[in-house]
Design a protein around this nucleic acid. Structure first.
Lengths: 230, 230
DNA sequence: CATTTGGACGGTACTCAGTTCCACGCCAGG
DNA sequence: CCTGGCGTGGAACTGAGTACCGTCCAAATG
């Protein structure tokens, strides 16, 4: 209505909000300020964004659904690998946002309310991971639930670590770093196969007539499978 | 003023709030309702509790300080052990609260705003752990930061796992379970000795003319030493 | 005893986020 | 022409949180 060639009201609201947050800070910006700059009515703001915070975090819910879908159709050998793969979706989403993601990071670094909200979002991913892993390995053994919890936390943390490095510009190839980090996470949980009594460490020794190089691919495959490791 | 033998206003407010939350639910209870039942003025409520949510989470800040102090004076062999020890303070705090902690758990399970706030609190503990671990092992090697992140997340998750089990009454000796969980966490990170270059999982393949049985004793001796394994 | 001072409390008025409801304009298709 | 959706604007309301001030009480001080 106000100007007919302008981009859709939703985008104007986001632009107005982010620029005002940059100029005056988040707390010093009221919703009235935002709608005034965007040239729309106050109702319109809350129609598009459920809250003032939601302008900053537009689509966590959609991403959560995408991950759920990915996990549902995933046919990976182990739950941890499937989750490590699914979490790439999250990183990819941020990478596609590009500069927007960095502006948001600058905001969340300053405003604790926004930081808390982002942490809550991450916790939802982590919860989804945990539920998936728990479902994957029935809750047979005691300690399975704890293990699932640890795995989900590790995947989420490793992702956040790489994401923050990229957001701070300390990282040239975030996807490669994510893969490396996930390798480390998987190695964490596949290596020692902790026995019930605690001090773990299963060792498999074997003899082969083939050179080391010929054995490596098979070794990798074995390590990736791991499984119950009773 | 209203009644002179009553317990201090702060406690009356907490009681009134929690009972009203139980009766009508959190969202359906206004601060006016609370102060009316407590028989105090509205200003008094916000004097004691900075927000409506804060009635439910009284002393996370104090606990955070206690942990900081504990970590500062800790002279443990490794950072992970020190953190695993410090996190006992958190669990002990909840255990001392007893029934109050369970009422809070029932609330946070229903009200997402409260759940989010609790998650944010936990994230602060985790951040403190991460900073401590990072400081302990200088940031020499690349991958050290990730490792610190994973350790902190593992400790926090293991604690939360045990805490939730106790809150749900699935647990008779929570401190013992916490110790066991921390053992598992420590085992996770001490076993495989990840190499400096990132991709973890060192595999040693060798060929020997001797039968497997002859090699086992030597293998055991090697594994018992383990140590740095650079 | 009178006065002062400081702290705890109550009350009022305000800002702002978020909700609800309604009214208006615009653009189909009948 | 009008009719029924649909996006929008606007007004009024609730409730959390803040700022400020007045009051009461009690202990300290003369």
């Amino acid at each position: 209505m106000t100007s007919r060639s302008a981009p859709p009201a939703r985008d104007r609201l986001a632009d107005a909000a982010l620029s005002l947050f940059d100029e005056r800070g988040y707390d010093q910006t009221t919703v009235d300020d935002i709608v005034e700059r965007a040239g729309v009515g106050r109702s319109t703001f809350f129609r598009y964004y459920g809250s003032k915070e939601a302008v900053v975090f537009p689509d966590h819910d959609g991403l959560l659904d995408a991950i759920r879908a990915r996990l549902a159709t995933s046919s990976d050998a182990t739950a941890l690998v499937a989750v490590s793969d699914a979490v790439r979706l999250v990183l990819l989403h941020y990478l596609e946002e590009g500069e927007i993601a960095r502006r948001r990071y600058a905001l969340t670094s300053k405003v604790s309310a926004l930081r808390d909200r982002e942490i809550a979002s991450v916790a939802r991913y982590q919860r989804l991971f945990r539920e998936f892993i728990t479902a994957w390995m029935g809750d047979e053994a005691p300690g399975a639930a704890l293990r699932a919890e640890l795995m989900a936390a590790a995947v989420a943390s490793a992702h956040n670590h790489v994401l923050r490095r990229w957001l701070r510009g300390e990282c040239q190839d975030p996807l490669a770093e994510l893969d490396a980090a996930m390798q480390e996470v998987i190695a964490l949980f596949t290596a020692p196969a902790p026995t019930a009594d605690g001090a773990g460490t299963t060792v498999v020794a074997f003899q082969s007539s083939q050179p080391l190089d010929a054995l490596l691919p098979a070794l990798r495959r074995l390590l990736a499978e791991d499984g119950p490791a009773k």
